[in-house]
């Protein structure tokens, strides 16, 4: 019984992982994540002032 639970549990975990291959890492206070930076207006404005390569040409096509 215990083995069955472990196997079923492992299968469910595998399915869950394979269905969410790269879900966004979210942390509003962590600018090291994509979303943490792109939802942070102040961080983007600061970056735009100090760097004219990344943000200035971003967002063209999505």
């Amino acid at each position: 019984m215990k083995q069955k639970i472990i196997i079923i549990g492992s299968l469910i975990s595998l399915i869950a992982i394979s269905c969410h291959p790269g879900e966004a890492i979210t942390n509003k206070n962590d600018p090291s994540t994509c979303e943490g930076c792109h939802i942070n207006k102040e961080a983007l404005m600061k970056l735009a002032k100090t760097d004219d390569t990344g943000t200035s040409d971003g967002g063209g096509g999505g």
């Binding site: 509003k28 979303e35 207006k41 983007l44 735009a48 971003g58």
Partner: peptide, 10 residues
Amino acid sequence: EPWEKVLIKI
């Protein structure tokens, strides 16, 4: 603005 182009406003 450059920052505005890539902002995802929550």
